[in-house]
Simulated scan of single mutants.
Amino acid sequence: MTHLGTGQRWGVAAATILTLTALAGCGMIGGDDAGDTPAAGAGKSVAATPDDDPSVAASAEAPPAAAAVDACALVTRQEAEKLAGTRLEDPLEKPTDRDTCTYTGPVTGPTAQVEVYVGDGAKKFLDIDRELGHKMTPISGVGDEAYAEDGTVFVSKGGVWACVRLVRSEDPALYRAGLEAVARTAAGRL
């Protein structure tokens, strides 16, 4: 007779438990009778219903996700140059992240940058500026909702937010009309 050591006994016990667990999961044991009847519902595909799981009803009624909007398509380089009043470089290509677009001024100057954000990032930008107490002025007739602050405009249309920020060293008031015009253009493209 061969005697198993303590480590071997634990190994056999673990293997037995794993085998029994696997068989129970397959419906091969634990049926209605002590025999070979599989557990109720084993082998059947059962779809969840709103009565079983309230989240099923919510997901079935959820609107389709909005199509992704390319931030660089909301404000073109030519429009950004008009807003900034200077020549700007093409944005860096970011094929996996099209919810931001940044046009920068040439290294020779003047200092200029136009940033475009669309989606959750634009909304978060607005929320943070509100929390910081930035003065927001509503822009009437633009999208569903639109606001301006020094150097930045926010616009929402169809539940999608966009933000355009201009960085220049001059007084932001000089660019207010241009920013509102860009907000109108962006809202029309959302």
Rank of each mutant, 00 (worst) to 15 (best):
M1S: 13
T2I: 11
H3P: 01
H3T: 15
H3F: 06
H3N: 09
T6L: 02
T6C: 00
G7P: 00
Q8W: 01
W10F: 06
W10M: 00
I17K: 00
T19H: 01
A22N: 07
A22G: 15
A24W: 06
I29C: 02
G30Q: 03
G31S: 10
A34V: 13
G35V: 07
A39L: 11
A42G: 04
A48N: 06
D51V: 06
D53Y: 05
V56G: 02
S59K: 10
S59F: 09
A60H: 05
P64T: 13
P64V: 11
P64F: 05
A65V: 11
A65I: 10
A67M: 06
V69D: 15
V69T: 14
E81I: 02
L83M: 03
L83C: 04
G85A: 12
G85I: 08
E89Q: 14
E89M: 11
P91E: 05
L92H: 09
K94I: 11
D97K: 04
R98A: 02
R98K: 14
R98S: 03
D99H: 13
D99L: 03
T100C: 02
C101G: 08
V107N: 12
T108K: 02
Q113C: 03
Y117I: 05
D120C: 00
A122V: 01
A122Q: 03
K123Q: 12
F125H: 09
L126A: 13
I128D: 15
I128C: 03
R130K: 12
G133V: 08
H134Q: 11
H134E: 12
M136E: 03
M136N: 01
M136T: 03
I139G: 01
G141V: 07
A146W: 12
E149V: 05
E149P: 00
G151N: 10
V153A: 04
V153S: 04
K157G: 12
G158N: 12
G159S: 11
R165S: 05
R165N: 08
L166S: 05
E170A: 10
E170F: 07
P172L: 08
P172Y: 13
A173N: 01
L174T: 12
Y175P: 00
Y175R: 01
Y175S: 04
R176N: 10
G178L: 05
G178P: 00
L179P: 00
L179M: 07
A181G: 13
A181D: 15
V182A: 07
A183H: 11
T185L: 15
A187G: 03
A187L: 09
G188I: 13
G188E: 14
L190K: 02
L190M: 09
